[in-house]
Simulated assay, not measured.
Amino acid sequence: MNKFFLLFLYIASFSLQYLFPQLFLFNMEFLNSLISVLSIFFGFYIVGLSIFVVSKFVNTLYLKEVKDSKGFKTTNLHILLNFYKNGLVLNLLSIFYFLLLIFVISNKNLISFSFYFSYLTIPLMFQNFLYSYKSLNQLIKIVIQNAKIEK
């Protein structure tokens, strides 16, 4: 993802949460629902990878060499797998973060800390949704290319 967009997302989210704290009070039900949605996204990533692995299009992705964003030679297969890996890691870290946030909110001694600890909630949600959207687009392209090959 674009680093400047992510930086803007985090700064805008922190600013909004700081200026309007009453709008961003997260309760346990919301966080539990968010964990459920992220778990579904995790399942989506795994299903996407399993569809991708059995695709005949994988070989063509491996054979085509391109330059990545840093200018190094790589294959489209490695770029796609790296994208999925980053999405899976982000998803798992987000689930862990929200479970930790539930613990902090439920612990009465840490309630003042939980307000500042929850600042990452909105950016992580947006980042997960964007990664899932991009992964879905990639999966659709793979299915279409696989259908063209099998024709």
Score class of each variant (00 low, 15 high):
20 F>A: 13
21 P>Q: 08
21 P>L: 02
22 Q>L: 13
23 L>G: 14
24 F>A: 00
24 F>P: 00
24 F>Q: 11
25 L>E: 15
25 L>Q: 14
28 M>Q: 13
29 E>I: 02
30 F>L: 01
30 F>G: 05
30 F>T: 04
33 S>D: 15
33 S>Q: 14
34 L>R: 01
34 L>H: 03
34 L>S: 10
35 I>F: 00
36 S>G: 12
36 S>A: 14
36 S>Y: 15
36 S>E: 13
36 S>L: 12
37 V>S: 14
37 V>D: 08
38 L>Q: 06
38 L>Y: 09
39 S>P: 05
39 S>A: 08
39 S>M: 08
40 I>M: 09
40 I>E: 10
41 F>I: 07
41 F>H: 01
41 F>Q: 14
42 F>N: 13
42 F>G: 14
43 G>A: 08
44 F>Q: 07
46 I>N: 11
48 G>L: 07
48 G>P: 08
50 S>P: 04
50 S>N: 12
52 F>W: 01
54 V>E: 09
55 S>N: 10
55 S>C: 03
58 V>A: 04
58 V>C: 00
58 V>M: 12
59 N>I: 15
62 Y>P: 10
63 L>M: 15
63 L>P: 07
63 L>A: 08
64 K>W: 04
65 E>V: 01
66 V>A: 05
67 K>H: 02
69 S>M: 13
70 K>S: 13
70 K>Q: 15
70 K>Y: 10
72 F>W: 14
73 K>E: 11
75 T>Y: 05
77 L>P: 00
78 H>V: 15
79 I>F: 03
79 I>C: 06
79 I>A: 01
80 L>V: 12
82 N>M: 11
82 N>C: 02
83 F>M: 02
84 Y>P: 08
85 K>R: 14
86 N>F: 13
87 G>I: 11
87 G>L: 07
89 V>K: 12
89 V>M: 06
90 L>K: 11
90 L>F: 02
91 N>D: 07
91 N>P: 05
91 N>Y: 09
94 S>L: 04
95 I>E: 08
96 F>Q: 10
97 Y>H: 00
97 Y>Q: 03
97 Y>D: 02
98 F>R: 04
98 F>Q: 05
98 F>E: 04
99 L>D: 01
102 I>W: 11
104 V>E: 03
104 V>Q: 06
105 I>Q: 02
106 S>N: 15
107 N>R: 04
107 N>H: 09
108 K>R: 14
110 L>K: 11
111 I>K: 04
111 I>C: 03
111 I>H: 09
112 S>I: 06
113 F>P: 03
113 F>D: 01
113 F>S: 01
114 S>D: 01
114 S>A: 02
115 F>E: 09
116 Y>V: 03
116 Y>D: 07
117 F>Y: 12
117 F>R: 00
117 F>W: 05
118 S>C: 00
120 L>Q: 08
121 T>L: 06
121 T>S: 01
122 I>V: 06
123 P>V: 05
124 L>V: 03
124 L>R: 08
125 M>L: 13
125 M>V: 11
125 M>E: 08
126 F>C: 00
126 F>P: 01
126 F>R: 01
126 F>D: 04
127 Q>E: 11
129 F>W: 10
131 Y>A: 12
132 S>A: 14
133 Y>N: 06
133 Y>C: 09
133 Y>S: 09
